[in-house]
């Protein structure tokens, strides 16, 4: 049986408290376990079912900071630097052993990592943006990257395992991962991303934003009628190719 690393949790109400505290004391990435006692009044752990892993949260924050520094943090403010961080952090987070349990599905776990452990990375990645980059959810700064990394993982034995994570632009990611009926099935997310890749080779990336939006609309309707996840791999691939072709036709009008 896998021993689950129980990560610190921060409720939405604790996010406000912690953000207010960060503003007072200056936003810094925490690198020591003392942060757990500093925030003991607003954080919690699952009462049982594993071992408390506050140190793991610190280590994740430390590694994310290293990745950010490689991308140019804190000086670089270009979209290219931030896109590089997003890609590398998504690949990293998808492979963190402590995030391969139900804990990673919890908003309050991600709220703690962003608000308490690494708020300065959030402020760098999304300067001036609202608290939804700190609270848990599909727009949380790190949670969205974990969702992308795990949702576009082609598998350990694939020669280009993280090719989808590195190829898809932000708009395509949002189209896939902010539609929960699609985002909750890894088979669908990878298949659609593969469809995006194939279509972008045919048409060029410049036209893909419009095509992708139309393809997702068609796929969502199709998925209401036919259980796409029930189709075998070949049938699913063929369905998605056909949908992208339809989207290309509609977009060309």
């Amino acid at each position: 049986m896998m021993a689950v690393a129980l990560l610190p949790r921060l409720k939405p109400i604790g996010v406000d408290t912690a953000l207010a505290r960060s503003l007072e004391s200056g936003v810094t990435t925490s690198a020591t376990l003392s942060v757990l006692s500093d925030y003991s009044d607003v954080l919690s752990f699952a009462p049982s079912g594993g071992y408390k892993a506050g140190a793991a949260a610190i280590a994740i924050g430390r590694e994310l900071k290293t990745i950010a520094e490689r991308a140019g943090f804190p000086a670089a403010t270009s979209q290219a630097a931030k896109a590089e961080f997003d890609q590398e952090a998504a690949v990293y987070l998808a492979q963190v052993p402590e995030l391969q349990s139900g804990e990673a599905l919890r908003n309050d776990v991600w709220a703690f990592l962003t608000t308490v452990i690494a708020p300065e990375l959030v402020c760098w990645r999304f300067p001036g943006e609202s608290r939804n980059r700190f609270t848990g959810g599909n727009r949380n700064t790190f949670q969205r990257l974990w969702i992308r990394g795990t949702g576009l993982d082609r598998g350990n034995d694939h020669p280009d395992r993280w090719g989808l994570v590195k190829a898809l632009p932000e708009d395509a990611m949002v189209q896939i991962f902010e539609r929960s009926a699609i985002a909750n099935s890894r088979r669908l997310t990878t298949a659609i991303a593969e469809g995006w890749m194939g279509t972008s080779i045919k048409t060029g990336k410049g036209t893909m934003e419009n095509i992708m939006r139309k393809a997702i609309k068609i796929l969502r309707i199709r998925n209401e009628i036919i259980d796409l996840s029930y189709l075998d791999d070949d049938q699913l691939e063929m369905t998605i190719v056909t949908v992208f072709e339809s989207a290309m036709t509609v977009a060309a009008r």
């Binding site: 139900g102 599905l105 009926a181 909750n184 099935s185 890894r186 996840s229 029930y230």
Partner: peptide
């Protein structure tokens, strides 16, 4: 026909992850 048992998990109205557990 196929009887399919889908299992999802995660807080919220919609599950965070879903898989086909039995067919």
């Amino acid at each position: 026909m196929a009887a399919v048992f889908m299992v999802g998990t995660g807080a919220g109205t919609m599950p965070r992850v879903v898989h086909r557990a039995c067919t």
